[in-house]
Write a protein that binds this DNA or RNA. Structure first.
Length: 502
RNA sequence: AGCGAGGUAGGGUAGUCUGGAGUGCCCGUCGGGCUCAUAACCCGAAGACCGGUGGUUCAAAUCCACCCCUCGCUACCA
């Protein structure tokens, strides 16, 4: 987010809008730790902006067309419709478990979406950017899968190892090549568009190398949206998937579209960065629709140092983790351990380490010791703010504007450290009367502020914290020392220490 | 092959664009303090020729050149 935007928001009560999207997930497999990572990070950003008072729209959903889905369905003895209905619910369930606060869950099989695709194709066509040509490529007949030269393994299908066939078929193309210069121009004049910065370089370099027109239809695929101008053709992936961001806010005439477009950030994995940074903007230019403000490509997770994959059998189920350690612990880990944008490593041992050291020892223990002392005290808790200067709220804001959750949490934990230190330095347990009241005032106000600041990361923990302090969970505006008027009541630990000896 | 990223104490990272004492964070190790608290909290210390070589500069982790190692991308794996 730009400095200008930031300054703007700090003046007066103007409410900014914030439209954030995750990729839509392909339903041929259930959510794994990688999918969960993308969605959790997006949710944290969405919640942060709500906390800051922005009007937020957060979109996620599932990508449900394609031959692989049709195949998976028939392998299960189901129709594609039955299959996608069933699997998409699994995604919804997982997001519920992980406390994902999306505003809309879109499915590309919705009737609304077909309308979007039809209109969108019409616009591209109106701009003269669609033409009929011939697609040629490798095709695995039994798998019904199109393959690129590079995907082949020893000239055979990477999935089943069988021979592939060189096929040619009539297809419609989008004039992607036409947009090379305009794209490069756009990247240049909108420095924040592609991030992190190194991705921007990566994309610019590749675009400079030239763009090939893109085949957008197929004949031999039929679990897909029809191509209106020529009914024997079907839309092949690109347009179908990318336009979900428009359908999600009721393009072209809906109120939501008017309020929320352009998207403020498309959060994507690095593997689909190309589609969002090149193909999508080019198509939007062709359709004469404003471009999104930012495409953020995050890195990938390895699992205990190894690349994750079905064949490796090391795919991690986020639901199991959430059941075992709580969704909040998992969410915290994602935001605290991995530099958003770079590749990171996930391992249960690291997760447990973070839980025991940071969530149990620093945070949970802090609340517990303060609440214990406060409960014993029967006077009125009031005093002078002594710790205000220890909180770098602007620093946290700035970090979050830069999507740097790691340093935002770092700064929050610094403040937490100051609170713990204050307990020791003042030997609060030895104080009495006015002095005790004053110390408790500072500690409880500190705890209250922390509960607000961590709420985007750990909504459940934040709620339980404010409940013990006996105050209503506030927003970013309330992150300053004021009058304390909570009623403290101890209600057990925020996090339980994980036994690592077992 | 091309393009990109990374190589910073025992491990993991930030800092590099906009050069200025090796500066920070998390874990681990060692010593001390405290006993309100979940064997938690607080303080202090040890530990790094910042991948290598050469160059620019009063000054280089940071800029330039070359080299070595690891990883990724190359057109739907989040």
């Amino acid at each position: 987010m730009s400095a200008a935007y930031h300054a703007f928001r700090q003046h007066g009560d103007h409410i900014s809008k914030f439209y954030i999207t995750t990729p839509i997930y392909y339903v041929n497999s259930v959510p794994h730790i990688g999918t969960a990572y993308t969605t959790i990070m997006s949710d944290i950003l969405a919640r942060w902006h709500r906390l800051a008072g922005d009007d937020v729209f957060f979109l996620t959903g599932t990508d449900e067309h394609g031959e692989k889905v049709a195949k998976a369905a028939s392998a299960n003895g189901e129709s594609p419709k039955e299959f996608t209905d069933r699997i998409s619910v699994k995604f919804i369930d997982v997001w519920k478990k992980l406390n994902i606060s999306y505003d809309r869950f879109i499915r590309t099989t919705e009737a609304e979406h077909t309308k979007t695709v039809d209109r969108f194709v019409q616009l591209l066509s109106d701009s003269g950017d669609i033409y009929k040509g011939e697609y040629a490529g490798w095709y695995c007949v039994p798998d019904e899968t199109f393959l690129t030269e590079l995907q082949l393994v020893n000239g055979r299908c990477p999935e089943c190892g069988r021979e592939v066939k060189w096929v040619k078929e009539e297809a419609y193309f989008f004039r992607l090549s036409k947009y090379k210069d305009r794209l490069l121009e756009y990247y240049k004049s909108h420095k924040d568009f592609l991030s992190p910065e190194f991705r921007s370089k990566e994309i610019s370099n590749r675009v400079e190398g030239g763009l090939k027109d893109l085949d957008i239809t197929r004949i031999s695929v039929d679990w897909a949206i029809g191509f209106q101008p020529d009914p024997k053709h079907y839309i092949y992936v690109w347009i179908d998937a990318l336009t979900n961001y428009l359908t999600g806010i009721d393009w072209p005439d809906g109120e939501k579209f008017k309020e929320f477009w352009p998207a403020d950030v498309h959060v994507v994995g690095k593997e689909i960065n190309w589609f969002h940074s090149v193909i999508w903007p080019a198509m939007l230019m062709s359709a004469k629709i404003e471009l999104p403000r930012k495409v953020f490509a995050h890195g990938w997770l390895t699992v205990a140092g190894e690349k994750m994959g079905k064949s490796k059998g090391n795919a991690i189920d986020p639901v199991q983790l959430a059941d075992k350690y709580s969704a909040d612990a998992l969410r915290y880990f994602c935001a605290r351990e991995i530099s958003f944008g770079r590749d990171g490593d996930f391992s249960e041992a690291k997760l447990v380490e973070r839980i025991n050291n940071e969530l149990v020892a620093d945070l949970g223990n802090f609340l517990n010791r303060v609440v214990t002392m406060a409960e014993k005290f029967d006077g009125k808790i009031e005093g002078e703010p002594e710790l205000e200067g220890k909180l770098d709220l602007d620093g946290i804001r700035k970090s979050m504007d830069e999507l740097d959750t790691l340093s935002a949490l770092d700064t929050i934990w610094k403040f937490l450290g100051e609170l713990n230190k204050y307990v020791n330095d003042k030997a609060v347990w030895k104080l009495e009367g006015k002095e005790l009241s004053n110390a408790l005032y500072n500690l409880l106000e500190g705890a209250r502020i922390i509960s607000i600041l961590i709420s985007p990361f750990m909504p459940d923990t934040a709620a339980r914290m404010s409940e013990q302090i006996g105050v209503k969970l506030g927003t970013l505006k309330d992150c300053k020392f004021g009058e304390f008027n909570g009623k403290v009541s101890k209600k057990g630990f925020l996090f339980k220490k994980v036994d690592t000896k077992a």
